[in-house]
Design a protein around this nucleic acid. Structure first.
Length: 397
DNA sequence: TCTGGGGTCCTAGGACCC
DNA sequence: TCTGGGGTCCTAGGACCC
């Protein structure tokens, strides 16, 4: 029997990652900060002040007080040890003189659209992986790999004024790792034969899917690099990680991954949450909590409405002062995008949580999403659903 | 000086139905 | 009456990612 030609054809999958994306967008706007450590993040919505001589005065990291984390930082700030996710107060100790800017997501979304469109003109099969990165398939394009990489970087720069890094390999797993190897402004092309020399020396934590917990656990077994993972005893891995994850770990260590590039995905949930400036007491701060709660429900409703969606499963999330997090959810009979109905369902969920400690965070979520193009006659209407909720709500108190 | 906000996916037990 | 197995839905928690 003959196999179809192409059955074993090696794919050319690219991963493109914008370099220090948010910070780089800010530098387009404030070019005088180029070359300096700059941190984007925090909670205050302040902006640079234009002084009388026309120059701009920027806030410094040391002036920051309160909660919040670093959203991103320039390479100069990273050199001082400041990375995204780090607490702002800790970052201020490491880089007190760094310039501080508030995050401006509208601008980032704008530049995100620009760079994605630029790539789509060359390689239309794109998988969206968030605001600053994408996968795309080059397998069907006739051009040479390096030529394509240069062409795409040039198109991205012309569209946005920004640089990016690209990894091109036979699969998403390797491309994701590769795009990081020559950052910023890099191109890295790898084949499976390069895995022992280029991939095995790296930490297991470089693998997309091996997070902090798994890294720590592997370290406990004496496994630090991907090469060590490749040589690890299968029985040992299975014993500590379970059969499914152990098999995945073995494949990953060999550079094996056959996941397709997913060009269209449907949203599964919509949520809004907020961390309070100070921890709120469930009774003493009841009024404030109640106001925030209503607002979160309204924002979820507005998001659903805006996207033409309705959610059937409404849930809440509470984080206590000790960082313990609990969730509760409840499935309605019919999907809804109505803020009052969302709030009723969410309130029922909230009632099932024992509120003894102060709250650090409150969130509201809608899952089980469906499109709401048209209203079908005879469907249970909001009023009926409300009545059902009242009955349920009474039972729970 | 801890630890944001918006997501996805997986697991696991229990309910319920066939 | 007892014993099953499979499938699906619901809920809660947790790991992970950008």
């Amino acid at each position: 029997m003959r196999l179809a030609v192409g059955a074993f054809k090696t794919r050319r999958i690219a991963h493109l990652d914008m370099d220090a994306f948010f910070a780089s967008v800010e530098l387009l706007r404030y070019p005088e900060l180029r070359g300096h450590p700059v941190v984007v993040g925090g909670r205050h919505d302040w902006h640079p002040v234009v002084t009388t001589d026309g120059t701009r005065r920027f806030a410094r990291l040391r002036e920051y007080v309160g909660r919040g984390v670093v959203t991103t930082s320039t390479y100069e700030a990273r050199a001082l040890g400041v990375f995204s996710g780090m607490g702002m107060m800790k970052a201020a100790v490491l880089a007190p003189e760094a310039y501080l800017l508030p995050a401006n997501f509208e601008a980032y979304r704008h530049y995100s659209n620009l760079f994605k469109k630029a790539v789509a003109n060359i390689a239309p099969e794109i998988e969206d992986r968030g605001i600053d990165e994408i996968y795309f398939d080059l397998s069907l394009l006739p051009d040479d790999t390096m030529a394509l990489a240069y062409q795409i970087k040039k198109a991205v720069r012309e569209a946005t004024g920004l640089s990016c890094s690209i990894g091109i390999t036979p699969n998403k797993l390797l491309s994701k790792i590769a795009s990081e190897l020559h950052k910023p402004d890099g191109i890295t092309v790898l084949s499976l034969e390069d895995v022992p020399t280029r991939i095995w020396p790296l930490s297991v934590s470089k693998v997309n899917g091996i997070g902090p917990k798994a890294t720590l656990k592997l370290e406990g077994l004496g496994i630090r690099t991907i090469g060590e993972l490749a040589k690890a005893d299968a029985g040992l891995l299975q014993q500590h990680f379970g059969a499914t994850y152990a098999i995945w770990l073995r494949d990953v260590a060999q550079g094996m991954d056959d996941r397709p590039v997913v060009t269209q995905a449907t949203r599964k949930s919509v949520s809004r949450e907020t961390t309070f400036e100070r921890d709120l007491h469930p009774l003493a701060d009841r009024a404030e909590l109640s106001g925030v709660f209503t607002e979160l429900c309204q924002r979820v409703a507005a998001d659903l409405e805006h996207k033409g969606l309705a959610g059937r499963t409404i849930g809440v999330k509470v984080r206590f002062e000790d960082f313990r997090t609990v969730t509760r959810d409840f499935s309605l009979i019919t999907p809804t995008a109505d803020s009052r109905m969302i709030q009723r369902a969410a309130r029922m969920c909230l009632k099932r949580i024992e509120l003894q400690q102060r709250l650090r965070l409150l969130g509201v979520r809608a899952g089980g999403l469906t499109r709401v193009e048209k209203r079908v006659e005879g469907e249970s209407n909001p009023q009926q659903q409300m009545e059902l909720l009242e009955i349920k709500g009474d039972q729970s108190t």
